[in-house]
């Protein structure tokens, strides 16, 4: 027995409200982040990730308030991503009760920011979110980093990028396949495995989960340390506990 593989539900938050229609039958307010966080906590989620998709930076303060409220009631690790561009942004989230922040666009624009953030706050609270897309296929597939929701190519090799972010002190990689995100066809397993086998820090697999077996594949074939999913939990198709039982039945160590 030892370290358990983690299951992490992900919530998109817009102006302080959870979007993408969370549909628990017995929940009164489907858009309330605190109520939804409490539910996932009860189901046995190992961590929670909140992505702030608020378009206007004027409303970023709303997210701080959400984090404060959730952190006051749910005692599992919380990661917050979206709009983190300066060390001050990191500190503000940590002081509000986040345990980790996810840095995406700002890392691509200014890689040194990741080094500054880890020097200042410690590696344990800096997650680098990597959006990767396959650019060549065949026997030697290649993936590159994309920004702006997968629309903007950067030309940066995804595997090299993850290695570099680990060297800069990132404590964890949140790896999303832009080819699979939203498809419900399962993780990009070759990508996941390449990244997991390359870096010495934990990797969270993300993008494409459509059923519980995909979570199992992410760990067993993708070598992921944690798996992140949104829609299969939001639409009450499966509970986190069901997901864990399924993983356990496949021989994966989980916290039950």
């Amino acid at each position: 027995m030892g370290l358990a593989k983690r299951i992490i539900p992900c919530l998109d938050v817009d102006n302080g409200r959870v979007v993408k229609g969370v549909q628990f039958v017995d929940i009164r307010d489907a858009g309330d982040p605190v109520e939804i966080a409490r539910r996932y906590d009860q189901e046995g989620a190992d961590e929670l990730t909140f992505l702030d998709i608020t378009a206007s930076s004027d409303n970023r303060g709303t997210m701080i308030h959400v984090v404060e409220q959730v952190a006051g009631e749910v005692f599992i690790p919380l990661t917050v991503g979206g709009g983190i561009r300066k060390v001050d942004d990191v500190l503000r989230m940590l002081n509000a009760g986040a345990d980790k922040v996810a840095i995406n666009t700002a890392a691509v624009a200014h890689p040194e920011f990741v080094r500054q953030a880890t020097d200042h706050c410690g590696s344990q609270c800096i997650v680098v979110a990597v959006d990767a897309k396959q650019v060549t296929g065949g026997d030697t597939p290649r993936w590159e980093i994309f920004t702006h929701g997968g629309r903007k190519a950067t030309g940066i090799d995804a595997i090299e990028w993850c290695r570099r972010m680990a060297d800069y002190g990132a404590g964890e990689i949140l790896l999303t396949s832009m080819d699979r995100d939203g498809t419900r066809n399962g993780f990009d397993l070759p990508l996941t495995r390449r990244v997991c086998d390359t870096v010495e820090i934990p990797v969270i697999a993300s993008g494409g989960v459509g059923n519980l077996n995909h979570l199992v594949e992410g760990v067993i074939e993708g070598h992921a340390d944690a798996v992140l999913a949104a829609s299969i939990f939001h639409f009450a198709e499966h509970t986190v506990e069901e997901a864990k039982r399924c993983m356990q039945a496949a021989g994966i160590e989980v916290r039950l």
Partner: peptide, 17 residues
């Protein structure tokens, strides 16, 4: 100890007994 074969990641992060 350094992960080496990639079996153990550092930091030790998550739920352990």
């Amino acid at each position: 100890p350094a992960p080496g074969d990639g079996a153990l990641k550092i930091p030790h992060m998550g739920w352990n007994q």
